[in-house]
Each structure stands twice: as C-alpha cells, then as structure tokens.
C-alpha cells in the first residue's frame, strides 16, 4: 500500500476535506467489491479515480451519493456522517450533489431544456422566467446554446454529456460527481469535456469526484489521483506523486492503457 496521501494528518484541518471515506466495505453476493476504501477529497479540488474496469469505481460513486449503502465503514460529507442518515437526512444531503452518470441518464421523454429545468421545476419554487434564465445560462456554460428543443436521442454523444453536465450543475451543487464523463468520445471531444469540467469546477467553485478511464489525459485537469485496485485505493496523491510512483500495479495499468488495451480487467473477486 503506497499511500502518498499528504493530508494524512487530517485531524488538523477536518473542514478542508469535503468528503472523507473510511474503511468502506461492500459485498455483492460472493464478490467483495469495496474492500476497505479510504479516500479524502479536499474541498475545491478535482479528485480523479482511475482503475481497471469492473474494479468498483461506479459502486464507490453510488455510495458517495447514497444510492447504495455500505456494509461497514463511514462516509463523511462536509463533516456529516451520511452513512447513518434516514431518508429525510439523505434528501437534504442530496441537495448538495450534482451527478453525471456514466450513461448520461438524460430523460429520453424530455427535451434538453426540460431535462435541465427538471430539478428546478420539481424541487424549487422559482418562477418560469427565473428557471428559463438559469437554464439558458447553464446551457451556455456547457456550450449547448440553441439545443433546448432537441431530444437526447437527437444529440451526439458529446452533446449528451454536456446536457447531462448542465443538468448536474443546474442547482449549483457544492459537490459534483462524474462517472466516466468522456466514455465513447473521440480524443478531441474528450479534451474539450475535460476542460469544460475544469472550467465549471473553477467557475462554480466546486468539489469534484471524477471516475475516468482517460489515462493519462485526465490527469491534466485533476488535482489529485486515486488508483483503485482490488476494492481499495492502491495509490493516492497529487498527479506528480502518482505519476512518479513506483507502484507495480499502477505501472502495469498505465502501460495497459497506453497500449490501447481497453479491457485489462483485473476484476477483484
């Protein structure tokens, strides 16, 4: 375990971490998917989680946004231990989140405008005009102006990701979670989405947790990197620390990625 975490003296400044995960474990049937995950996400930074496909990255994100409950371990968000919350508490905590799902998860019966406006319409008492202003502004921020009346199926993959990002941002969350925001995009669009994520993170002063397979391109817009392997964080640190680490598994993972080996599934079991 090459733990390069520099904030290991977390007791000194607990408020500096927007998210703290401790010894998180979760089992599905006979598969220990999360096997003691520890992770710190400093407020106002982008932490990128990488790892072989099937290693549990999505499952971890779904624990962070409380779609799944752990068998043991704790998740602390802004100082609140969310693993013990009832459903009212969970709904309150979710007000802080924006989530971009791996598959985009746009409602396909709604237009782009309706999709992006949906959280405002359903969860706030803003007037139609206020909502319209906010939606137009957010669509502009992700470079989708003029696409309001298109249905998700009429958009390209990159545009769908942008629309999903706009919907995740519409309520101005504190914490943005992104599950493979660039899957299925060509390198040019991947770079564009990466920079869009960095820009919105800065503009809206967000804390972001991103799962990505675009190694090493995604490191350019990451503050910290966590390498997930066998259900735990094998390596955590700043981009420089991780890139210069001598961890064998990580080197193998990087090499596999670089040689275009898409499915180096060292699935934990």
């Amino acid at each position: 375990m090459a733990h390069l975490t520099m904030t290991s003296n977390g007791n000194d400044a607990p408020a500096a971490n927007a998210i703290e995960v401790r010894a998180l474990r979760r089992r599905f049937d006979h598969q220990q998917v999360l096997n003691g995950v520890d992770l710190d996400v400093p407020a106002g930074s982008i932490v990128t989680i990488v790892g072989p496909s099937g290693c549990g990255k999505t499952v971890l994100l779904k624990h962070l946004n409380l779609l799944l409950r752990p068998d043991s371990g704790t998740i602390t968000i802004d100082g609140v231990n969310v693993t013990r919350l009832g459903w009212r508490g969970i709904d309150a905590v979710r007000e802080w989140f924006g989530m971009l799902f791996q598959s985009g998860a746009l409602f396909d019966s709604m237009t782009v405008y309706e999709n992006v406006a949906f959280p405002l319409v359903e969860k706030t008492s803003q007037t139609k005009d206020q909502i319209r202003g906010r939606v137009i502004e957010t669509l502009q921020a992700v470079g989708l102006e003029g696409m309001d009346n298109k249905y998700p199926s009429e958009l390209s993959g990159g545009m769908q990701k942008r629309a999903a990002l706009a919907r995740a941002l519409i309520r101005r969350p504190k914490i943005l979670m992104l599950d493979e925001p660039t899957t299925g995009l060509d390198p040019t669009r991947t770079g564009a989405i990466h920079h869009l994520i960095r820009k919105t993170q800065k503009d809206f002063n967000l804390t972001a947790v991103m799962v990505s397979h675009d190694v090493p391109a995604v490191f350019e817009v990451s503050d910290r990197v966590a390498f997930m392997h066998r259900g735990r964080m094998q390596l955590v640190g700043t981009v420089e620390q991780v890139m210069s680490s001598s961890d064998e598994e990580f080197k193998r993972f990087l090499a596999g990625r670089a040689s275009g080996d898409e499915d180096n599934s060292t699935v934990s079991s």
């Binding site: 779904k62 946004n65 779609l67 969970i90 709904d91 979710r94 007000e95 989140f97 989530m99 799902f101 791996q102 598959s103 985009g104 998860a105 746009l106 409602f107 396909d108 949906f118 959280p119 359903e122 969860k123």
Partner: peptide
C-alpha cells in the same frame, strides 16, 4: 430501460 440507463438513479439523486 430507464433503470438500465440510470434514469431512475438520476431521479433518486435529485431527491425525487
């Protein structure tokens, strides 16, 4: 298919 494409999860995360 809404469940498979995570649209149901998306609603849940919106606290709906």
């Amino acid at each position: 298919s809404m469940q498979a494409s995570e649209q149901v999860d998306a609603m849940t995360v919106m606290a709906l």
